[in-house]
Amino acid sequence: TAIVEAAQASGLDRVATEERDAWAATSRGTGELIVAATEAGAETVILTVGGSASTDGGSCALEALEAAGVDPDIEVLCDVRTPFEGAARVFAPQKGADPDTVERLTGRLHQLAQDAPRDPRGEPMTGAAGGLAGGLWAHRGARLVLGAGYMLDAVGFDARARESGFVVTGEGRLDAQSLDGKVCGEVATRCLHRGLPCHALVGQNALERSEQLTVELASVDEATTLEELEAAGRRLVSRG
C-alpha cells in the first residue's frame, strides 16, 4: 500500500500566486505519482486530496494512468462532500478563477461527466480536488471516503473522547466549508452525538452564528499567536 498526497504534486501551494491559472492547471502530476507507486509494487494507493490547483475533473491524472497501463486499487480520502458539478463554483475562485473562468470550468466538468463510464454528478465527495476524486470514481472505481473521519478513526478519537470532559478542535479559518467534511466539522459532529462540549480555537472565525449552532460548538475563540493560544487554553480549563 502506498500513500500519495495530491497537494504535493498538483497543489495550489506549489504554484506562485502570479503564475496560477485555474483553466490550465492539471492533475497529471498526481497521476504520475500514482503510476510511480504502482510500478514500485503498490497494489493499493491511498490518495489524499485537498488543496489542489486544478479543476480538470481528474482527466489528466487519468491520462497518466492510461499511458502507463496501470490499474491499482485506489481509495481517495476527501476533505469535502461537494459533488463533481460544484467543484468549480465552490473552489475555483480560490485557485485564481474569475467568474467567466468558473463558468467555463463548470461546462468542462459537465462534459467530462457526460463522457464518463458512470456519471459522478450528484455523488458526494466527487468534487474534491477539482473533481479529481470524481474522475477516479467514474473511470477507475475508486472508493471515496471522508478523510476527516478516516483520520479520526486511525487515531482512536472516539475512545479518547469517551474519556474526556470536553474537546478542543481548530482550523486556520473557520467557515461554512469547515462543516462540509473537514476535520473541524467532523470533530464537532462526533462530539454533538455524544453530548460532549466542543470548543474551537481558530485563526479567523467566518462562521455565521446559525452555522455554529448546527454543530453546537460550545465556543469559538480566535487566536493567532502562541500567547493567545495559551491564554485561550487557560480559559477553557477554567470553564471546566
Rank of each mutant, 00 (worst) to 15 (best):
V202E: 03
L132C: 06
G233P: 04
R160P: 08
A87F: 03
G147E: 06
L77C: 14
A42S: 13
L112R: 03
E123K: 13
F157C: 10
P124A: 10
D73K: 14
G149D: 15
Q204F: 06
F91L: 04
P99C: 00
I34M: 12
G29N: 10
L152Q: 09
A138Q: 00
F84E: 14
G69C: 09
R104I: 09
C78H: 10
G107A: 04
G170D: 12
L192V: 01
S54N: 13
A231N: 09
L33P: 08
A161C: 12
V183C: 12
S210A: 13
L146C: 14
E163M: 15
A188R: 00
G203F: 01
N205A: 04
A40C: 09
C191N: 05
M151L: 15
V167A: 14
K95D: 11
V202M: 02
V237M: 09
L62V: 06
E163F: 13
E123A: 11
V202R: 02
R140H: 12
G107V: 02
V167D: 09
G181M: 05
S54C: 14
A200V: 11
R190K: 01
D158N: 11
F84Q: 15
F91S: 02
P99A: 00
Q8W: 14
E5T: 14
H110N: 14
R239N: 05
L192Y: 07
A64C: 10
I74R: 08
A7I: 08
A37Y: 01
A24I: 09
C184F: 03
C78Y: 11
S54Y: 02
V102A: 02
A40K: 12
G134W: 08
K95L: 10
R160F: 09
T38W: 08
V155S: 03
M125N: 01
S178E: 04
M151V: 15
L196H: 03
T26V: 04
V45S: 04
T48H: 06
G141N: 07
V49P: 01
L236Q: 09
T1D: 15
R28C: 05
T48V: 12
A22R: 02
L179T: 00
L226G: 10
S238I: 08
A68V: 08
Q94F: 03
R28Y: 03
P83G: 04
A22Y: 08
G131T: 07
T225H: 07
R162L: 13
A133N: 06
A68P: 05
R235G: 07
A129T: 08
L174H: 06
V45A: 04
D71L: 13
A40L: 14
V49Y: 01
L207S: 05
D221C: 10
L105T: 04
C60K: 11
L236I: 14
A97V: 03
N205Q: 05
T214M: 06
R234I: 09
Q212S: 12
E63S: 14
E228Q: 14
V145N: 09
L132A: 00
R173Q: 12
D175Q: 03
E171K: 07
A138D: 02
A148P: 06
A64Y: 05
R143V: 15
C78S: 13
A200P: 01
A223K: 00
L236Y: 09
T106I: 02
L152E: 09
